[in-house]
Design a protein around this nucleic acid. Structure first.
Lengths: 212, 212
DNA sequence: TAGATTGTTAATCGATTAACAATC
DNA sequence: TAGATTGTTAATCGATTAACAATC
C-alpha cells in the first residue's frame, strides 16, 4: 500500500509533468521536478521508485514517459465520474474550477435540494434533485462525491452518497464525517486553513507548505 | 514552537467548542471533543496540555473556559485582517463563505485586475484594483492574503502581497509559490484532493482523513 | 574519463499511540 | 470508595533525510 502523502505528491508531479509536456520539455532531473512540485529531490526519487519508473543519471526522467507512468498509477483504467452535492456559491465555483480539467475525472452530475435549481445546466453540468441521486449515480457510474453543502446537512448528504455507492468523498463542510469502513474522506477545511495561515503569519518563521 | 498539526487541531477544537457553547453544553470529556474533531482523545489531552488548560477527571473540560484558552492561544489580541485577490467564481464563493464567520479574522478587502469589478461591493466587501493593494493593505492593517487567481498569475500576486507586508498566504492556485523566509504558505490544492479521493475510492480500505 | 544524477538502504526525525500513576 | 478521566512520560510508528555505490 502506497502512503497518502506519496499519492498526493504523485498527483502534483502529474500536474507539473503536464505543464512541462505542454511546454515541450523532454526530460527533467529530480531536483527540477521537486522544485516545481514543492517536494524534495529525495522524495521524488523515492516516489518514482515506488511506481517503478526509472530515469537515467544523464538525462533524468523523460517527461512524457514518466507522465504516462504516473497517470497509469493514479488514474483509473476507464475514468471515474464525480457527483457534486450542493450547488451554492462554492458548488458553482467548483463546477467552473473542475470543468474540462481532467477528462478522466470529471463531475458528471450535480445535486441540490433547491427545486429552483434542478433541471438547470450549470457550467455544462446538469443539476438533479436529491431524490434522483441513487438513480443518476448508478447510471453515470459515480464513485466519488463532493460535499459542498452547509455543515448541518453534510452528514446526511455523505450518508446518501455512500448509500448510492460512492467510496470517496471530498468534503468542504467543517464537520468530521462519519462513514463506513472502506469509504475515504478527504477534508478541505478552508476556515481552519485560513486560521493556520493567520497564526503562522504572526509567528513569522516556519515557512512550511500544507500537506493538502 | 507548536507544531502545525497541533495548531490545525486547536483550530478545529475551537470550532467544535463554539458549537457546544451555542448548544449550551457546559463540559466535555476528551473523547467527545476528539470524536467531534476527528482527532483522538490522546491528541486532545496532549494538545490542551500544550496550551496550558486543565480539565478535571470528573467533568472533563469546561467548554467556555477551554474555548477562551484556545482562542487566546490562536487568535491575535486585536484581530487580523485578510485580503482576497481574485474575485472570480472561487473568490466570490470565498467572500460568501467567510462572511461574518470569524469577526477577528475577516476579509477586509478584495482585489482584482478586472476594471469592471473594481469599485463594486460583493458580499459586503469592497473590490479594489491591484494597483491599490499596498495602500489598502497598509490602511486596513492586512497581514494575511488569499490567492484565488489562475495558476499563471499566482506567483506575481503572491509577490505583490508579500511586498504589501503580508506574512501568511492561503493559496488556492495549483502552483508551488516561492516566498521569502518568514512568509507562511498554506496550500489548498482542490484538484489534488479530488484525485486523492478518487484514488482511495478505488482502493477501498484506508479510511483516513486528510491533514488539511 | 570526470561528474552529476540515479536507485536504494540506513539514520534521523517527529508525531502518534500506549501506558499509568494521580486525581476527583 | 470505585471508577472513569486526567496529565505526562515512554514506546511505537512512519515519514523524511542523509548517504553512497552504481550508472551513464
Amino acid at each position: 500500500m502506497v502512503s497518502p502523502r506519496t499519492i498526493q505528491r504523485l498527483s502534483v508531479y502529474g500536474r507539473v509533468l503536464r505543464e512541462l509536456a505542454r511546454d515541450g520539455v523532454e526530460a527533467v532531473f529530480s531536483h527540477e521536478l521537486a522544485r516545481r512540485s514543492g517536494a524534495t529531490a529525495a522524495q521524488v526519487r523515492r516516489d518514482l521508485m515506488v511506481i517503478g519508473y526509472s530515469g537515467s543519471p544523464q538525462h533524468g526522467y523523460v517527461v512524457v514517459e514518466l507522465l504516462e507512468s504516473v497517470e497509469r498509477f493514479l488514474d483509473p483504467s476507464g475514468g471515474q465520474t464525480v457527483a457534486l452535492v450542493g450547488v451554492g456559491n462554492l458548488g458553482t465555483a467548483l463546477l467552473a474550477y473542475f470543468r474540462g480539467r481532467r477528462p478522466k475525472l470529471r463531475i458528471a452530475a450535480a445535486f441540490d435540494r433547491d427545486p429552483r435549481l434542478t433541471g438547470r445546466v450549470l457550467q455544462g453540468c446538469r443539476v438533479y434533485g436529491m431524490d434522483e441521486l441513487s438513480k443518476v449515480a448508478l447510471a453515470e457510474g459515480i464513485d466519488v462525491g463532493i460535499v459542498a453543502v452547509p455543515a448541518d446537512q453534510a452528514q446526511e448528504v455523505a450518508d446518501a452518497l455512500v448509500r448510492a455507492g460512492v467510496r470517496g468523498l471530498l468534503n468542504f463542510a467543517p464537520v468530521s464525517l462519519r462513514v463506513a469502513d472502506g469509504v475515504h474522506v478527504e477534508d478541505i477545511d478552508m476556515a481552519t486553513a485560513l486560521e493556520k495561515a493567520a497564526y503562522f503569519a504572526r509567528q513569522g518563521a516556519m515557512n512550511e507548505d500544507a500537506v493538502t
